[in-house]
């Protein structure tokens, strides 16, 4: 069982996680916040012990063992100073990476746009969904899934999964991990408003594919080139024979 008191003592934020909703089972924490008619406050966090239909990108599944991992969503309400949503995306995966480094001394790799890897295996994923009325973004939902104490993974995955337990050979406190991720995420969002280049640089430092030959698959299209850098929006800059091209989506792998 998730110990809410223990989590609450370690939470050191102003906004994120101050309204905390804990549920045993839910279809998807992202869907809950997307579909709700309630006006939940900015920073509301919904944590579920079990998601019956946990989501990844374009209806891929996020599978997670009950009571062993962290699957939660954070609600962000835009304000006039709100930065580019794509940078929130990078700030989220960065917050997870920084926390895993600080707490367990892992060597973390960030895979564009927002996967968190250890030894080429996936330990965490982020799925951000937003709702807009025409061109005005009304709410942003940051879904995070972290493999914490799950001992084994059966089945087929796009990227081989791993957990903190597998990598560190011990069970860890999910309460402490969640509070630290939220603390770090809030810190990153505040920094993002002041200086987005610091967030981009911290992200670049952990992206080992920069400078490498890569393959990007998007639908039926495949592109080859060198992963040159990320731009101020977080888009991937691909260097090809024809020149530089900005990429804003697709599955990227080393060539």
């Amino acid at each position: 069982m998730f110990n809410i008191e223990e989590f609450d003592i370690k939470l050191d934020t102003q906004v994120i996680g101050r309204n905390f909703i804990y549920v045993e089972e839910i279809d998807s924490t992202n869907d809950f916040l997307m579909k709700t008619e309630e006006n939940y406050p900015n920073g509301t966090v919904v944590l579920a012990e079990h998601q019956s239909s946990g989501k990844g990108r374009r209806n891929k599944e996020w599978k997670s063992e009950k009571n062993n991992n962290l699957t939660f969503s954070i609600l962000l309400l835009p304000n006039p100073n709100f930065p580019n949503v794509n940078l929130i995306n990078l700030s989220a995966s960065l917050a997870i990476a920084q926390t895993l480094e600080n707490l367990y001394q892992f060597d973390i790799e960030l895979k564009w746009p927002n996967d968190v890897l250890i030894n080429k295996k996936k330990i965490s994923g982020v799925l951000i969904e937003t709702i807009s009325k025409s061109d005005k973004i009304e709410k942003i939902i940051v879904g995070m899934g972290i493999n914490v104490n799950q001992p084994t993974f059966a089945g087929k995955y796009d990227i081989r999964p791993t957990s903190i337990r597998i990598e560190s050979k011990r069970e860890v406190s999910r309460e402490k991990l969640l509070s630290e991720i939220l603390n770090q995420f809030e810190e990153n969002l505040l920094l993002l408003e002041k200086s987005s280049s610091k967030i981009l640089n911290a992200w670049r430092l952990r992206c080992k594919m920069i400078g490498e030959k890569v393959k990007i698959i998007r639908g039926k299209e495949t592109k080859f080139g060198i992963f040159d850098d990320i731009d101020h929006n977080g888009f991937l800059i691909l260097k090809t024979r024809e020149g530089y091209e900005k990429i804003h989506g697709g599955d990227i792998s080393l060539r």
Binding site: R58, N89, P113, E129, T130, S132, I137, G249
Partner: peptide, 21 residues
């Protein structure tokens, strides 16, 4: 109607659901 979902625009695995205004 106002609020009907029309489409999704995706960038960097960020799924943006766009409703009619």
């Amino acid at each position: 109607s106002e609020g009907t979902v029309l489409c999704i625009v995706e960038a960097m695995k960020l799924m943006n659901e766009i409703e009619s205004d």
